[in-house]
Design a protein around this nucleic acid. Structure first.
Ligand SMILES: [Zn+2]
Ligand SMILES: [Zn+2]
Ligand SMILES: [Zn+2]
Ligand SMILES: [Zn+2]
Lengths: 139, 139
DNA sequence: CTTGACCCTATAGTGGCTAGAGGGTGCAGC
DNA sequence: GCTGCACCCTCTAGCCACTATAGGGTCAAG
């Protein structure tokens, strides 16, 4: 019979490691439902809100976009459904992340190559500047 | 004595693999100098512009921000100066890239772990949803 | 003299927030 | 009561690096 305690936005922010403005932003874009208000027009959140926001933040920490999170939230509410759709979403996000890693590794090795080519001296002789000035664009 | 040929914005775009709107954007933010205009008010670029834009695009392909590129461009014009500043810029950018790679690798391995934990079935039993709903946020 | 490829400006939108102005609320201490 | 303070409210604008759209003008070929 313990009623879930009501949280003010600052409490919810502290409980989930989210900034207050970010919480209001999530409400504005319809990711977090607008909570009831107190007499003084303060937002009054319940534990349901807290759970949903935690879900969002954990998903964000894994790099999901807000749209992907919207989908995950919808799926998670559809409890009887097969979870293959969740797997697909996670898999395709993982592929994105792996692609991004591969991109960045190409950049990093090119940057290291450039760095090693520099033997000091004036800008005029700098191999880094030379590379940026005349090498072909990366494929 | 061969005068450098004048390029219209579409030619410059084709020559550097840049979109026309992006070229105008670079001009607007002062990264690429505004070229003279023809009678019909078309931008008329010279090879100097083409070289500068190529430099910008190659630097972008290496992940430098436009502000970093602004600095690189300033440095590259200061031909007698010691190139240590260039090295510092490249090194700090490389560190950024490496940090980003490390971040993404953490995400990827967490995503793979979650994916493996899913044994199929309904959403209600899905370990992925469970992990997003109740695991502690990543550190 | 019309077609069509090309060019121009200006404005607004993307994602995921962040910053600031200008004000209201609620509670403790005096 | 009254003041100070932490907290809350809305609204607008800004960040990065573009991208998209509307509503026009230019120019050479057929
Ligand atoms: Zn994704
Ligand atoms: Zn050097
Ligand atoms: Zn950088
Ligand atoms: Zn599952």
């Amino acid at each position: 019979m313990t009623e879930p305690s009501l949280l003010r936005i600052g409490d919810l922010a502290a409980a989930t490691g989210t900034k207050i403005v970010t919480i209001r932003y999530y409400e504005k874009i319809g990711l977090l439902p607008a909570p009831p208000r107190t007499g003084g027009n303060y937002r009054a959140y319940s534990t349901t809100h807290r759970e949903r926001l935690s879900f969002i933040r954990r998903s964000r920490a894994l790099g999901f976009t807000l749209d992907e999170i919207r989908e995950l939230l919808e799926l998670s509410a559809d409890t009887e459904r097969d979870c293959a759709a969740v797997d697909r979403l996670v898999t395709s996000h993982l592929v994105e992340v792996e692609d991004k890693i591969a991109d960045l590794q190409r950049l990093a090795s090119e940057l290291r190559r450039m760095k090693e080519s520099c033997r000091g001296g004036t800008i005029d002789d700098c191999r880094i500047i030379e590379a940026l000035s005349s090498q072909p664009t990366l494929p």
